[in-house]
Design a protein around this nucleic acid. Sequence first.
DNA 1: CCAACTATTTGCGCTGGCTCAAATTGGAGG
DNA 2: CCTCCAATTTGAGCCAGCGCAAATAGTTGG
Lengths: 239, 239
Amino acid sequence: MQHEVGGMDYSPDLDLFARTELFQGTPPEALRFLQASAGRRRLAAGDILFQQGDRTTSLFVVIAGRLRASQMAQDGQQIIIRYLGPGEVAGYAALVGSDTHPGTVTAVDDSHLIGWTSAIVRQIMERYPVVAINALTLLGQRYHEMQIRVRELSTERVERRIGHTLLRLAHQSGRRTARGIEIAFPLSRRDLAEMVGTTLHTVSRTLSAWEERGIVSCGRCRVVLCKPHALVAIADEEE
Amino acid sequence: MQHEVGGMDYSPDLDLFARTELFQGTPPEALRFLQASAGRRRLAAGDILFQQGDRTTSLFVVIAGRLRASQMAQDGQQIIIRYLGPGEVAGYAALVGSDTHPGTVTAVDDSHLIGWTSAIVRQIMERYPVVAINALTLLGQRYHEMQIRVRELSTERVERRIGHTLLRLAHQSGRRTARGIEIAFPLSRRDLAEMVGTTLHTVSRTLSAWEERGIVSCGRCRVVLCKPHALVAIADEEE
DNA sequence: CCAACTATTTGCGCTGGCTCAAATTGGAGG
DNA sequence: CCTCCAATTTGAGCCAGCGCAAATAGTTGG
């Protein structure tokens, strides 16, 4: 963790991290302490924040950009756990007291994060229980997301899962454009396949079919949802 | 929550819940307060502790018995999130501040739990941050379990998933017997199917094939792992 | 503008595992 | 011992989606 102490951008950062869900309700003196003890980290698209199995040293909050949390099996098969955007936490291991990172986090766009050592995080949580309670809430949401994903993987066909996944991504980081809602970061067919639990071939075929029907519009690492309602119909249709 | 205040079994209960991971490191006066404010709940096999969508009122710790946490989709398809045994927490919603339960918890054996209202839980966490931090650790473990399960569902074939699931269940609640390690609670083919993400037919066929080879031995709602090492080989074989 | 890559598309054949159906077994209660 | 019911087994057929392979289309660096 490098400390780029360039006095001029104090308050913007303070504003940004203090508004995240993790630090809601934290008293001002704690925020000042956090501000003073924070490290900064800038990543270019493709850079790795930390890798699966790395020793846990810090907790990060995303200030700007987009990152991907993934997990790899011993046979090299990879899955994407989720994408992270501004305000979200990367490096949960430091919150839950795990000594190694269970997954790898990679920037998919140029990103800016701030972070604190595990010791500081621990200290803050012991002194300001509200932070630990906020962390519980956040982790609870993620746990619930994973439950839903397990249910989808267990019970739904590929087409519906792709639909749900795209809708979720659009919700998290959709950008309105003339043609529809665009997923606002580079997302390849392979990436989508690793989120959905299928192959890039099947994703490609499905998107092609949808493009035919005008539901989506896609290019290299780009997906635009032109008719989100049609996608909802596909994702939630009875049968 | 009914309070069955029958003075005689004070200390046994105190011992039991105080030893759970959730309350590790909690000072004695907090334990006394928890003891005084706890409610008890006894369930017969098949009884429901709470249902998906119910308003969150309490947090429970399993003292004895075994319960199943499940989730149902709107189309009626059900999946089993996990089984809970002594020392484990049921009703995470009260820890993470969710106002409804995301799943249903049912006793699969006669069970005994103690519980506290959400308000008391909140109060304890605010006053004794160590409890919130312990809860984070617990939830982190469950989150990690779910990540692994998503990975298995995404990348592994049914036979291997059944293998992994049985090994995990044996680890959580296996009982040594003359014939091998027995899963110590009633587990039907359908239950296993709902944990693994397949149909009871496929589970039945797979178990039959394994029984043929002497790897397992099973009866109605019973599974005994006779050759766990062979199961490990199936679950972890390269390919 | 060319070369080298990477991402994507698409065809083809195969099969794991699902669906549907029916028979069988094992307990629980009377 | 008999009845009823839930759990289990097993057969047969089918198909969604995977694996393999080859062609195509953007992108990046030189």
